[in-house]
Design a protein around this nucleic acid. Structure first.
Length: 447
RNA sequence: GGCCCUAUCGUCUAACGGUUAGGACACGAGCUUUUCAAGCUUGUAAUCGGGGUUCGAUUCCCCGUAGGGUCACCA
């Protein structure tokens, strides 16, 4: 049995986006699970549109995801090889130099055309079965501008031939290109590889995912604090499934379960909510110290400084923040929304905010807070945990109405309508700060 | 427009002729001992239409319809 060789062949005319990632992943999986070779080939024959920045973006993205390649090529560095084959085709008479009348600016007076045998080409697609095309309408298509400048279809076929690619796995926008590539292949005397065309990943309006449809670079997801395992899990399940209800799947499991036979035919709309859900799932699996580092890095400068000053408080804040984000990028939003600052700085708020629902009586509220103070003072600072605080307060709160006690207490500690519960806040802030903030609340309620 | 491909909840999908058409995300409700988050339970929600084949079609065939792709001296 021959060795499996797959390739991912992006052109550096755009960033590596989710759709390309899936193509790369499937090719990579297939090569890896067959102990084959995975080639990364940069298709930069279009010098006008290809840039080094895009190439770097693609390489960075793949390496961040862990989709490692065994061989690397750049088509712009292989012109001697294309030239050799071009000359052979011309000598064989399957290609010829053609005199042209330039119709557009920049068009050449002489190009190399392929002598189209004008026949029906049938090929087998691993997911769709046999597909037939009449290639007559292709005419004698152009395969190179000149001997030094091959065009896409020609370069692809030569490369796949020269590199020994056995399995071509690409997007289904490549289906219509296949017949003409097969024609070239046959003229070259190259073997026909196995073809698998993947259904498109679509924008919400069901059009092909593209830059103008908000297709972000994976490097942008990385920068927004998404995890590679979440991205990989997410794209793996768009167009393929392990054959059961499993939603969370690791790369190791994919390596065991992936098959071309289970790849879908229909396109899939990109669903950011599911990506977020998956990312949150993987976030929870991370070691807390790593989560802490990531959160710290994304806090605004002043809060980061505060957090570093009181590491014992920050350590307790980390899980609280983790519960409220689906990617690390949301830490910045959380912080700018004021949902982090109160852990480190005493909050400011109007006295009325302390009132629970309909009870607008400052005297009642003050009395409850006084009772809280009195109770909490009895707790040893070393035992000032959410549990002990809750236990100490619970009976009283239940007796007089939990909201009446717990709302003003929580508000005094956080200064916000929404926050973790007052017991957790008390533990995080510690006895001293807790009592100070409650005292402040009592003060602004007046006498 | 020609050619090619596709079609199950809003979205991702399961069901290799026989299921009360299943799961997940999102959404709604409830619970979780005040708010938020998280978690748990639960609900709403789909086989594009029409013909066949068959005892029986989501599943096979045909025709429509819709969507997408592709028709460069781009990739």
């Amino acid at each position: 049995m021959t060795k499996v060789i797959t390739r991912f062949a992006p052109s550096p005319t755009g960033v590596l986006h989710i759709g390309s990632v899936r193509t790369a992943l499937y090719s990579w999986l297939y090569a890896r699970q067959h102990e084959g070779t995975f080639i990364l080939r940069i298709e930069d024959t279009d010098k006008e549109r290809s840039t080094r920045e895009f190439e770097e973006n693609i390489i960075d993205g793949l390496s961040w995801l862990g989709l490692t390649h065994d061989e690397f090529y750049r088509q712009s560095e292989r012109s001697a090889i294309y030239k050799k084959h071009l000359e052979k085709l011309i000598a064989d008479g399957t290609a010829y130099v053609s005199k042209e009348e330039p119709k557009e600016e920049g068009q050449l007076a002489e190009v190399i055309r392929f002598k189209n045998p004008n026949r029906v080409v049938t090929f087998r697609d691993e997911v769709r079965g046999d597909i037939s095309f009449d290639t007559t309408e292709l005419k004698d298509f152009v395969i190179a501008k000149d001997l030094e400048t091959p065009l896409y279809h020609f370069a692809v076929v030569v490369d796949d031939f020269e590199m020994g690619v056995t399995h071509i796995i690409r997007g289904d926008d490549g289906i219509s290109n296949t017949p003409r590539q097969i024609l070239i292949q046959e003229a070259l005397g190259a073997p026909r590889p196995s073809y698998t065309h993947l259904p498109m990943i679509l924008a919400p309006d069901k059009s092909k995912l593209s830059k103008r449809h908000g297709a972000l670079a994976v490097t942008e997801y990385r920068d927004e604090g998404y995890l590679p395992e979440a991205i990989l899990n997410f794209v793996a399940l768009m167009g393929w499934n392990p054959g059961n209800d499993q939603e969370v799947i690791s790369v190791d499991e994919m390596l065991k379960l992936f098959t071309l036979e289970k790849v879908h035919k229909g396109g899939a709309v990109f669903n950011i909510d599911k990506l977020k859900w998956l990312n949150k799932h993987y976030l929870k699996l991370l070691p807390m110290d790593r989560v802490g580092e990531q959160i710290l890095a994304r806090l605004p400068d002043d809060l980061r400084a505060s957090a570093k000053n009181v590491p014992e408080i920050f350590a307790k804040v980390v899980p609280v923040i983790l519960e409220r984000i689906s990617s690390f990028g949301e830490v910045a939003e959380l912080a700018s929304g004021g949902e982090v600052g109160y852990f480190f700085n005493d909050p400011a708020y109007p006295a009325e905010a302390l009132f629970w629902k309909d009870d607008k009586d400052a005297g009642h509220t003050r009395a409850h807070l006084d009772k809280v103070t009195e109770t909490l003072q009895k707790i040893n600072p070393a035992d000032f945990t959410a549990d002990t605080v809750k236990t100490a307060l619970w009976d009283y709160a239940t007796e007089v109405g939990r909201g009446n006690v717990l709302w003003p207490m929580r508000y005094a500690l956080s200064g916000r309508d929404k926050s973790p519960d007052p017991f957790m806040l008390a533990e995080i802030l510690g006895k001293e700060t807790t009592l100070r903030r409650i005292e402040h609340a009592v003060k602004i309620l007046g006498s």
